[in-house]
Simulated assay, not measured.
Amino acid sequence: MTAQEQPAGGWMVDGLAHGEVFFASPTLQQRSHGVQGAVRAHEPVSADGIRRLFARAREAGIAQPVLFGLVPFDTARKASFTIAPQLQAAPVPPRGMAAPAGRRPAVLQRQPVPAPEVYGDMVRKALDLYEQGDVRKIVLSRAMDVELDAPIAYADVLRDLLRRNAHGYTFAVPAWEGDAAADKPAAVMLGASPELLVRREGDRVFINPLAGSIPRVADPAEDQARREGLAVSEKDLREHGYVVSDIVRILRDHCDDLDVPEGPSVIGTDALWHLSTFITGRLKNPAISALELACALHPTPAICGFPTAQAFAHIQALEPFDREYFAGLVGWQREGGDGEWALTLRCAKYDGDRRLRLYAGAGTVAGSDPDSEIRETAMKMETFMRAIA
């Protein structure tokens, strides 16, 4: 079934099985049917490798192949790619149509990785590094291992994430390992990212970095005060400026007609207010694909730090676990290069049975408060947990 044969309707999440693909952007939802016959790979990202995957798909009789993928935070590691033999696509229905979830699993155990106080010590070590002067921002993350009393229902979780993530990127994308020939994937990355890294439509590209955030609250007056405070926060504007300036520096090598707003706006998810800058440009070389441009930009200071190389090295030294696909790229691409790649945020790695690893990160700069960063990361993980259990 091709995308053109699928009529518009509701959310296409019913019956989604482990290993099938779902990806929804603000305007388009796509899902696959079945795992058999898919073209899959677990390999480093390369333009030649992507061309080979599309060639394999055509040889397999897939008429209009669409590639879905997960690229690790460390792009030197292997990525996971899937081209499904049957794909449905349709416009996104009104978000209010998302049905409430049914019975959800109960949480049997939670294990923070590392403990919150250890994460606070990581932030303090970053503050010491800022005084030494070689780095100005480091994004530090932590995880939570969760054991449930029953498997999750993908449809229920995705509906809840879609309801909470009205303007974001909601996904369930398989993570294949080894020769990618197993009957089912090693895991599925499941989540609802607020942040678009690159969308390509012909020679036009769209980039929307987020950096600088504050938790929302139920009281409308206090919530509005937080929104207004974020818009003028020196610390958050400085953090956001690092991200935008670095992205623009890289985009100038690839784009003409860059349109960069003078300053950020404030956008909201259900849990957080974010500083946001929406950038558009026209590719100098229309042959560059969405994924190639995304990899040229990745990792941005939004999920790594500034300067990037120094921040990346400090992350490897400070974080006591492997990010794997967290803070990497998740998205899709057509053979001609059009597609969307978001940052793999507000997410979990799910084993298909009863175990998940949740992730969250926060940008730290000089003046950051360790306790605030602990609360921010806890809020991000709790938002995801509300969709599961």
Score class of each variant (00 low, 15 high):
233 S>H: 09
304 C>R: 13
107 V>E: 04
18 H>D: 12
205 V>H: 08
47 A>T: 14
27 T>C: 02
203 D>H: 11
33 H>I: 12
105 P>N: 05
57 A>I: 15
304 C>V: 10
121 D>W: 12
279 I>S: 11
188 V>H: 04
258 L>I: 14
285 N>Q: 15
36 Q>K: 08
20 E>F: 00
321 F>N: 00
181 A>N: 04
375 R>S: 15
154 Y>S: 15
215 P>M: 06
62 I>S: 02
40 R>G: 01
289 S>D: 01
243 V>W: 02
35 V>G: 12
10 G>W: 00
75 T>H: 08
69 G>I: 06
149 D>R: 12
105 P>H: 01
136 R>N: 14
188 V>L: 02
358 L>V: 15
29 Q>W: 05
254 H>W: 11
357 R>D: 02
313 A>Q: 08
358 L>M: 10
95 R>T: 13
7 P>K: 10
150 A>M: 03
273 W>A: 13
311 A>C: 09
48 D>N: 10
51 R>F: 05
41 A>T: 02
50 I>E: 08
236 D>V: 02
240 H>Y: 04
292 E>L: 01
178 G>T: 04
1 M>P: 02
160 D>A: 15
305 G>W: 00
134 D>N: 10
43 E>P: 03
133 G>K: 05
164 R>E: 12
49 G>Q: 11
1 M>T: 13
135 V>A: 05
254 H>G: 09
142 R>N: 04
369 D>Q: 14
385 M>P: 07
36 Q>T: 15
326 F>L: 00
33 H>D: 08
181 A>I: 00
280 T>R: 14
279 I>C: 09
125 K>R: 13
353 D>K: 13
